[in-house]
Design a protein around this nucleic acid. Structure first.
Lengths: 157, 157
DNA sequence: CTTATAACCGAGTAAATTAATAGGAATTAA
DNA sequence: TTAATTCCTATTAATTTACTCGGTTATAAG
């Protein structure tokens, strides 16, 4: 029941992009360095975000990436789903029945549980906008002046 | 972001035990057959449940397992945590800070997100009692008369 | 007392998934 | 034309999951 590095790294990458939104485009190499993530790997993550319409890429020299959607309108849920796939705790084709229960099998009573978990996760992440994280990030960084030091990996590694 | 078979099979096993609570003890072989799960593997799952004080084992002939706690007092959350470990989406030692944020690193802003997810999952599963599932199970089975047929695996496999 | 039954225990293995690496092709500003 | 950069696909390494297997211990019943 863990998020993979896709979700963890990927959300940080999008946040990095949002924090540097005034820079028009941000090269992947910059994000990779700031966040301490392999650039090759990050490339794969950003590809998912691009496919989902969350970021836009600009090719060629001086190119890079930018948010395709304003941070105020972008939910953490949309970002995580783009990176991780759906956030359901169990793959169950019938989990979306009207009542969440199929009448066929005893084992499917537990689907009720999976549906409740799924709903609560999605509700939580859809309720957080990227702009909230940007604001929090600025609050935390303010006053240190050490914005160019490589981010230490104290969690989520 | 998926629950493993530990959680999926294990919850079904506990539910099976609760549904057959009048039988004093239930042998693992019976649960395994009814639920279509390998007995050897189930053994490992039940060991976790036992360690967590959720079930009791009775050794020897005519032995088996029984719930250690009434189904009304047993939450799905306690069961899943016993089987899966904590239900946090990210292992982060600092996630439990008073405000959920550490002032050290930019990357830790995302901890705010992990904490919100974590809280919502735990709230959801702690709010479901095993007895609710037992009631639902009886409701679904009523009228079929086919209680001895092997449960079909239509989901959660 | 013996035997069958069933919990209990730990090691080992196969399969799947995740995380990452690597190499190159296409595009574009300077 | 060249350097920078995205874009694309394949391969490999590492980790985790999902089991299997072989045994030991306890106990009810004959």
């Amino acid at each position: 029941m863990k998020l993979s590095t896709k979700g963890r790294y990927g959300l940080r990458a999008v946040l990095d992009l949002a924090v540097h939104a005034e820079e028009e485009t941000v090269a992947l190499s910059q994000i990779a360095e700031r966040q301490g993530i392999s650039m090759n790997y990050l490339e794969q993550l950003i590809a998912r975000l691009k496919k989902a319409g969350i970021v836009n890429g600009v090719r060629g020299a001086q190119g890079g990436y930018m948010l395709a959607v304003p941070a105020e309108e972008l939910s953490v849920g949309a970002i995580l789903r783009a990176l991780e796939g759906d956030l359901n705790p169990v793959d169950c084709s019938e989990v979306n029945h009207s009542d969440g229960i199929c009448s066929n099998s005893d084992s499917c009573v537990t689907k009720y549980v999976w549906k409740r978990i799924s709903d609560s996760i999605n509700e939580a992440v859809d309720g957080i906008k990227l702009s909230e994280l940007v604001a929090e990030s600025r609050r935390v960084q303010t006053g240190t002046g050490a914005t160019d030091t490589k981010a230490k990996q104290t969690c989520g590694k």
